[in-house]
């Protein structure tokens, strides 16, 4: 899959933003006044900024409101609704903390559930696709959820929570990579089943439909970027998980926590780039590519 910057930024930052809103809503930390304002500003910048980035890859963003209508069947539609609902409810909760220094626990909990639901619906947009076997597995929602909650806890300054959740996320990331590597082969989809000619013998793509490229190849076939996949996995794992875990294990200081947060974001951006670049869409088979 083409690793478009808009979706990488969207999934990374809105995941962190909604993760922050989850913990603020749960009430593990109830800042008030100006401190609360600072926390909610960071959370909203990441959550809303990510959502706005995702609209950049739309062909017709002016019709985006129509995307709220098909929640019965579409995970993308459900995500839009969950995101807006979470942002509205958490704005009420945040207003209580900032202006009245009063937490409304029920509002916070509803907002937290909606925030977690938003991240889950995001992950299901990818998980539902049978056409991308690497995404079509249970570790995908588990990874998105654990990263959002772990990263959110890190940004809310909850050291123990962040440590535990990032540890879990690191394990799921490993499972996602290792299990993902054999998903295409295990899916049973080959050029033979794609063309129905597999029963006759070994099928080889002889000639593509056109000499030039096309939308399908640009969007779904990304072989070049996978060349450095292993190195990038090491970088993503080191920055996104290992370094933050090490820094969080040291005696707490604001500087170390800030460093952990920065390393985590950089690592997760790299891991999200790989999430797209390494994902093989079965349509590539028709072109003799992955």
């Amino acid at each position: 899959m083409h690793p478009a910057p808009s979706v990488i930024i969207f999934t990374t930052f809105s995941g962190l933003g909604f993760g922050m809103l989850f913990w603020l809503g749960i009430g593990v930390h109830t800042p008030t006044g100006f401190t609360a304002f600072a926390y909610f500003t960071v959370a909203y910048l990441m959550a809303v900024g990510g959502l706005l980035a995702s609209t950049f890859h739309l062909g017709h963003p002016e019709r985006a409101l129509k995307a709220f209508t098909q929640w019965r069947s579409s995970w993308l539609s459900r995500e839009g609704i969950a995101a807006v609902a979470a942002l509205i409810v958490m704005a009420l909760y945040g207003a209580g903390l900032v202006f009245a220094a009063t937490p409304f626990p029920l509002v916070g909990i509803i907002g937290a559930i909606l925030a977690a639901l938003t991240v889950f619906t995001t992950s299901m947009i990818y998980t539902q696709l049978k056409t991308v076997p690497r995404w079509n597995q249970w570790p995908t929602p588990a990874l998105f959820m654990s990263l959002s909650l772990g990263g959110g806890a890190l940004f809310v300054g909850q050291v123990t929570l962040a440590f535990l959740l990032l540890l879990i996320a690191a394990v799921i990331q490993g499972i996602h990579w290792v299990a993902g590597d054999s998903r295409l082969a295990d899916s049973g989809t080959t050029l033979g089943t794609a063309t129905g000619l597999g029963t006759m013998g070994r099928v080889k793509a002889f000639e593509p439909p056109h000499t030039g490229t096309n939308y399908l190849l640009r969007e779904f076939v990304h072989e070049v970027g996978r060349k450095h996949a292993f190195k990038l996995r090491v970088i993503a794992f080191g920055l996104g998980y290992a370094l933050p875990l090490l820094l969080l294990a040291l005696p707490y200081s604001f500087l170390l926590a800030a460093l952990a947060a920065i390393a985590h974001v950089a690592g997760i951006l790299a891991s999200r780039w790989l999430f797209f670049a390494e994902a093989e869409h079965v349509v590539g088979l028709y072109y003799g590519k992955r």
Partner: peptide, 21 residues
């Protein structure tokens, strides 16, 4: 009604849908 999000093309295993540039 199409917002050009491309998700339908992602969901199609056959490459039958193309977003017009």
């Amino acid at each position: 009604d199409c917002i050009g999000c491309g998700l339908c093309a992602w969901a199609c295993p056959y490459g039958a849908r193309e977003l017009d540039a």
